[in-house]
């Protein structure tokens, strides 16, 4: 413990000096205004069609649309299930007089985090994680690092801790920037607004026995906690790839391909049940909070978290074994 602290400090400052973090800030600063504008257009469009700002009417209209889609004989079974659950969820909001999409900065942040957790957030994490070890190889600094009288596992551990620090800051940054930028358009209020949570989807039934009304800030904190965990798992896997593959580009490519395969899979695996063991389809942990239908029937929060933990554990073990045993030649 005595000499791990300066190592971590060293790693954190190294990442900062490499300006990777500014890339993330830049990406967010460009993309969030785009998403905010898109959201604004959606809201304006609805108002233009319906001629009302009353959310009850808009939600009711949505329910009726879904009802008609469900009754259509051409509707696919798995979509039907999604619509039926969604109808029940919206209906509950109507009955409880809680606006599911009240336009403000906090709601936008909530939805943005929920939509980011599957692909966008992992990509941002990759920007930092991909070259943590591979970068040392390509720059040749790995030899300098390992010739110091420090055990190799401590070097790797310090990199893991530094990575965790940056994952936390990245998730915070995503939420903060999304709140600040969207708040300019939608307003900065909404922290105390009530939201519903605790949905359980069983088949096409929504179990409402455990539903709670909580203030939106609490929902946001829970959501960020889950998103943070998912990001951390992605970071661990990216670290393993970075240890195994010495080229940054190759490592980045592998992780990108895996993550994108995950989003494609979640859209089509509903009938292939053993696909649930892939970590990629489990990343959307946030959706369990708001009562969305999981991509594969039978996925639950506990399963997803356990699955992700196992993947992360295995990747950490492999990284440590390879990193401490490998000969550094070139």
């Amino acid at each position: 413990m005595t000499n791990i602290y300066p190592l971590v400090r060293n790693e954190v400052l190294k990442i900062w000096k490499k300006k990777r973090f500014f890339v993330i800030v830049l990406i967010l600063a460009v993309l969030i205004p785009i998403f905010t504008y898109a959201q604004l257009r959606v809201a304006l469009n609805v108002q233009k069609q319906m001629g009302t700002e009353d959310w009850r009417i808009v939600v009711q209209q949505q329910i009726q649309d879904y009802e008609n889609r469900v009754s259509s004989p051409r509707m696919q079974e798995e979509w039907k299930r999604w619509y039926i659950v969604e109808i029940q969820r919206l209906q509950l909001h109507l009955d409880q007089n809680i606006d599911p999409k009240s336009p403000n900065g906090v709601t936008f942040t909530n939805q943005f985090v929920a939509n980011s957790v599957g692909l966008f957030l992992p990509l941002l994490v990759l920007v930092i994680a991909a070259d943590l070890v591979a970068g040392e190889h390509s720059a040749g600094t790995i030899k300098l690092l390992l010739t110091r009288p420090i055990k190799r596992w401590k070097v790797l551990l310090s990199k893991y801790i530094a990575l965790t620090i940056y994952v936390s800051i990245t998730v915070l940054l995503l939420a903060a920037m999304s709140y600040l930028i969207s708040g300019l358009v939608f307003g900065f209020n909404g922290w105390m607004q009530p939201v519903l949570t605790g949905f359980q989807v069983i088949g096409s039934e929504l179990n409402i026995n455990n539903i709670n009304i909580i203030p939106q800030w609490q929902f946001l904190v829970m959501e960020l906690g889950l998103a943070w965990f998912s990001s951390l798992v992605v970071a661990c896997l990216a670290m393993m790839v970075s240890v195994l593959v010495r080229s940054i580009a190759a490592g980045m490519g592998i992780m990108l391909a895996t993550l994108i395969a995950g989003t494609i899979l979640t859209n089509m695996v509903s009938s292939w049940e053993s696909a649930k063991y892939f970590f990629m389809v489990n990343l959307q942990t946030v959706s369990y909070l708001s009562g969305a239908v999981p991509p594969i029937q039978g996925l639950t929060l506990s399963f997803s978290l356990l699955n992700l933990s196992v993947w992360a554990m295995i990747s950490i073990v492999i990284s440590f074994i390879v990193f401490t045993k490998r000969d550094i030649l070139n």
Binding site: N209, M222, T300, L301
Partner: peptide, 22 residues
């Protein structure tokens, strides 16, 4: 932030996995 996230994470598990009525 890490402590806030850990709090949120635990809170989320409690709410979803060990729900306590409505």
């Amino acid at each position: 932030t890490t402590s806030i996230f850990i709090y949120g994470f635990v809170n989320a598990i409690q709410t979803v996995v060990y729900p306590d009525g409505s």
